[in-house]
Amino acid sequence: MMQVTLLVNGEERRLSAEPLTPLLDVLRDTLHLTGAKPVCREGFCGACMVLLDGAPAVACLTPVALADGRSVETVEGLGTAETPSPVQRALEEHEAVQCGMCFPGMVVTLTHLTRPGNCAPTRDAVKAGLVGNLCRCTGYERIVDAALAVMEDGR
């Protein structure tokens, strides 16, 4: 076991874990942040996406040892029921949600993509940015519409 310090959604959390434990399991099982979903556990689906020092990371393939001392933002830190983020609000307004399992990861990726300079405001660019976020229900297009709307508002 190793002692690990994570800055989780702005709060310092100290815990002990086997160093190769996926960050995903630490978030869910130890910190009860169940927003990030274990779906494929091989870095393809993006349902466990978090921001690690501000950059998207698949928490399933991130050993907690490599997250030690770093900032981890999860979907829970990006917005709440009372104060959803612009990305969350846009997805809601575009009626993008179906089963919802992919959306925590979608929200994290789109939060990064819609920050200035990270993605051109075009359908193709947004779709390229979503290569690592799969959705089985929606057929994606409304998610892209929502992302473009956020970029449009942010300009």
Binding site: G35, E76, P84, E95, F103, P104, V107
Partner: peptide, 13 residues
């Protein structure tokens, strides 16, 4: 509109 969207979007579901 569906009523479960916000919790799904904020990771609370």
């Amino acid at each position: 509109r569906r009523r479960d969207a916000r919790d799904k979007l904020t990771g609370r579901t």
